[in-house]
Design a protein around this nucleic acid. Structure first.
Ligand SMILES: [Mn+2]
Ligand SMILES: [Mn+2]
Ligand SMILES: [Zn+2]
Ligand SMILES: [Zn+2]
Lengths: 139, 139
DNA sequence: AATATTTTGCAACATAGTTGCACTGTACTA
DNA sequence: TAGTACAGTGCAACTATGTTGCAAAATATT
């Protein structure tokens, strides 16, 4: 069985608060990536905007969620796999953003290929984002 | 010989204005990608912020520059190769962002590998961004 | 239960980006 | 090359996004 919300927070040495439980639950309930604004809408006036920003930051630092770079100016967040811990992410999968429905998917089973860089360049992190039409929107 | 500034603008059916000439010259002079803020600094009070936004938008639409997605919340712009035209970019190269000096490179000779997507997903565009240490910052 | 520590909400601020509109500069045509 | 049509610019106002300091509240520790 999967870890429940409280256990996940404890595992990452975070104190259990209402906002953290709620925001983590949004990620567990959603199959796809979420933006700050999505969480703000889902939670209504329950928490302050600032609390959401700080909670997302904390979750990223602790390795609970990871960010997804996008071509427009928005940051998306999605749950990490279990291997991610504080300060060390292992999310080397491809991300897919649907141009039609805007849904963002973690393609956990598609891993980012190694690329050969010019002399003198050393890779620390590689992000691969594909955009197009998702399996829900194809007709 | 390379097209000069005015010719480039004409080629893309843009009227020749001071701001467009100046902003295009910044890209031609710079080996690396530029952010909106870089252009604002370089041009001082010569143009309004809004003009810079609109000029960058226009250049992207016309295929003169392309955007580079980054892990943080910033949009970077770099010159396109000649094949890019209005509404159709051909920038399938890898981008590299140095964690030390923040310089962003178009690795024109490193092309983005094809990735095999799950059933039902159709790729329109693929962005691959590598971060790490550039050849200038390695010791 | 009392205390130490962490987290939260609020206010204020900073930066980024957009839109409408009047004015100005550029392109086109006679 | 002057006149006109049109495209581009500057300004003001606005929205969205994100950050910081600090006092109050909630949580963890004893
Ligand atoms: Mn992911
Ligand atoms: Mn490029
Ligand atoms: Zn879709
Ligand atoms: Zn560097």
């Amino acid at each position: 069985m999967q870890l429940n919300i409280t256990d996940t927070l404890k595992k990452h040495q975070l104190s259990i608060t209402d906002s953290r439980k709620k925001i983590l639950s949004f990620f567990l309930q959603s199959a796809n990536a979420l933006a700050h604004a999505d969480i703000e809408h889902k939670s209504g006036t329950e928490f302050d905007r600032v609390t959401i920003y700080r909670t997302l930051q904390t979750f990223v630092e602790k390795g609970i969620i990871h960010t997804i770079p996008t071509a427009d100016n928005s940051i998306l967040y999605a749950l990490c796999k279990d291997e991610c811990v504080a300060g060390h992410h292992h999310d080397d999968h491809v991300h897919f953003i649907c141009d039609t429905c805007s849904t963002t998917y973690c393609l956990d089973h598609v891993s980012v290929p190694k690329v050969k860089l010019p002399k003198g360049f050393k890779a620390a992190q590689t992000d691969l984002v594909v955009s197009g039409t998702c399996n829900n929107c194809e007709q």
